[in-house]
Computed example of a mutant assay.
Amino acid sequence: MRLLFLDFDGVVHPLHAESTGLQHFCWLPVLVRLVEPYDDVRIVVHSTWRFIHTDNELRALLGPLGPRFVGSAPRAPREQAIEMVLGANKGTVVSHIALDDDAKEFSGSTVNLLLVEPHLGISDVRVQDALSAWLSGGLNAADDGSTLVVTATVVGRGPDTPYVLVEDAQELQFFVIKRVFEGDWEALDSGDVVELITTRGELSRVLRARLISSSGGLDE
């Protein structure tokens, strides 16, 4: 089977849904539509909702996706909890992906993270395209242990979020989180050129990043 690790807040509804006028799970139909053709995909909830809801309640909250629910992640930090599930199911899980909006919960480990914007979640077309690529099988071997060196330009920094968005010459975009950056994180600005070490595949993860040229000239 393949596992989809699912956060709720910021993924299937906005992070602060009450203040936006949108209801909880308002974007769940999008996920239902994307997953529906793939019978081998099962869902593990790693959202903090697992701390206040039983597995039966989580299954009910997932609506049409309830039959795919196979349990909630252990009570541990998100990245560690996901790794624990994967470690316990090595012989069964052939591929996985984690949907989450909180970059600081992840340090760039072996977790195949699809980071979403907390105000857009799964409604973001970019996220839908990346998830569709994984679901269709194109990402089954996305992280085979090999890496790729990529040169990219900083195009923006998320407000109040510990990541920057960068884009390479082929207009492929990557999220760079603070923990994997080697250098002065606060000095990064739009137009800066960075070198990335990424995993191979359509949904690459950035393992390391460093500044090679600032927007004002070569970095000394």
Rank of each mutant, 00 (worst) to 15 (best):
S190R: 09
G216Q: 13
N56Y: 05
S123G: 08
M84F: 00
V180C: 08
H96G: 06
G191Q: 07
G87R: 15
V125T: 13
D124H: 14
G158C: 07
A133N: 13
G191S: 11
V154P: 03
T198G: 09
E117N: 06
R126I: 03
R208P: 01
K90F: 01
W49P: 00
A60K: 12
G63A: 14
L135A: 09
L165N: 10
V85A: 04
I197L: 15
V85T: 10
T110R: 07
M84W: 02
D192V: 02
I122K: 14
E18G: 11
R2W: 09
V166N: 01
I177W: 01
G201F: 00
T20N: 11
K104H: 12
P37Q: 12
T147K: 04
F174M: 01
G66D: 13
E36I: 06
L207K: 06
L120A: 11
H13S: 06
F8A: 05
S146M: 08
R205S: 15
V194C: 08
Q128L: 12
L139H: 11
E167H: 00
W27S: 07
L62F: 11
S95H: 06
D144A: 14
E105G: 03
L203W: 02
D124C: 08
S190I: 15
K104M: 04
V41A: 04
V93H: 05
D100I: 08
L165E: 09
W49Y: 03
I52R: 15
H119R: 12
F8L: 03
V41Y: 04
G217V: 11
R33S: 13
L135H: 09
V12T: 14
G71A: 05
R50C: 00
E18Q: 12
T147Q: 09
A60M: 10
Q170Y: 07
L86P: 02
